[in-house]
Computed example of a mutant assay.
Amino acid sequence: MRYAKFSMDDPFISMAEVRALVEGEVHFLAGVALLPDGREKIASRSSTVKVSGKLLSASHDPKEVNEAIRGRCFSIYPDVILGRDKNMFRALYSEATKGVETSKRCPKLDLVFTDGVIVAGIREEERDSKSLREHSMKPFSQSGTMDPFTSRLMVNLARVRKRVLDPFVGVGSILLESAWMGLDCVGVDVDPSMVTKAKANLSHFNYQCHVIQGSVTSLNLVGGFHVVTDPPYGRSSSAKGATLRELYAAFLSVSAELMERGGRLVFASDSREDWRDEIRSAGLKTVSTHLIYLHKSLSRAIYVVERG
């Protein structure tokens, strides 16, 4: 088995991302997921998973953990997920690590205490924080631009394996993450200045995506996509005179036509708006919604939608 330690900033979103990245049963503890073998590239592709690797032991008994690691050499990284357990873990840590040689030259061992269980695993992957930092410094940005962490999260929630479409591309935040993952990516925006900025941002990182100017209501594309996008939120937003609800209804209808069967649509919205009726009217079904706090006047809702 394998393990993944994820961010506790919003554990439910982290759990949803792990489920999207992993095929097969996943067992969750607070801050940790235990995964089946055969699914690498979890932490390195993730937005919220910090580290992952090969599971050596997961037990309430420190002696059992010690049996799995005794006589070996590790660089140990202890972590207590729930702060109230720190004092308890001190005694358990001492017993679990008896007979273990420690050196920074040896493999990294994550020793995580959570829900009364000690999880021990050899770290093999870490979140690619460097690329996230670099993408946050793209040449063109603007107020309300989606951050790289949320953009990468949304692409992962969509379970994209090959083709991804962003019909409200803006400055290209979602395309940057899609291209970084090596996906076949297409972006559309009605505003020619946004198209220019998105292309410039992609070019800055030597990424390749097809970016075109056009309206979401009149896309001329062949289907087979997963759709990931950050549509307009403001109540005054419009497209050729359409109201915001008309724009979303058209966008959802077009997305349903362009999605491959079993494909996913992941989109962001102001959490004060409810799009479930429009989603049903487009012949789609809502799988889940997740709230991300931005500031005191706005929380972002992430909708995960499927085509049957």
Rank of each mutant, 00 (worst) to 15 (best):
T114R: 00
E17K: 01
L109Q: 03
G234V: 13
V18Q: 00
L132W: 05
P192K: 05
E64A: 10
A58L: 04
A256D: 05
C209V: 13
A250K: 02
V228T: 04
S47Q: 05
L244W: 05
E257R: 13
S218G: 12
V228R: 02
L183Q: 04
V304D: 01
D270T: 05
A158N: 03
L153G: 04
G241L: 06
D110L: 08
V227C: 10
G121M: 06
L82T: 12
D10F: 11
S46L: 01
E306N: 11
I42E: 00
R280T: 14
L202I: 07
D189H: 04
L92Y: 09
K285I: 14
L219K: 06
P62I: 03
Y207R: 06
A68L: 02
F6I: 00
E260P: 12
V195G: 02
F140D: 08
D61K: 01
R70S: 13
V155H: 03
A179I: 11
L56D: 01
F251M: 09
A30P: 13
D115F: 04
A282W: 00
H295N: 08
D270F: 07
K108M: 11
T150S: 15
G214K: 04
K63C: 11
D79L: 12
L82I: 14
C185I: 11
P62L: 03
R272H: 11
N87F: 12
I212K: 14
V211D: 01
N66R: 05
G262H: 07
L183K: 09
R300K: 12
V190E: 15
M15D: 07
Q208G: 14
R19A: 01
R307Q: 13
C209H: 07
R161V: 15
G182T: 10
A256T: 07
R105F: 11
E23P: 10
K138D: 06
L132F: 07
F89R: 05
T217L: 13
E257H: 10
G71Q: 02
C185W: 07
W180M: 13
I13M: 12
E273Q: 12
Y93H: 13
L221W: 03
K240Q: 15
M8P: 06
R235K: 14
K108L: 12
D166S: 07
I292S: 11
F149Y: 15
V22E: 00
G214D: 03
G170T: 03
L21R: 01
L165G: 04
T114F: 02
S203V: 09
L298E: 07
H295E: 09
T217K: 12
S131P: 10
G99D: 09
G38E: 03
K108P: 13
L35C: 02
T102V: 12
Y93C: 09
K41M: 10
V155D: 03
H135I: 15
V305C: 01
R2L: 06
S255Q: 03
R272C: 11
L165H: 06
D79A: 15
L109G: 01
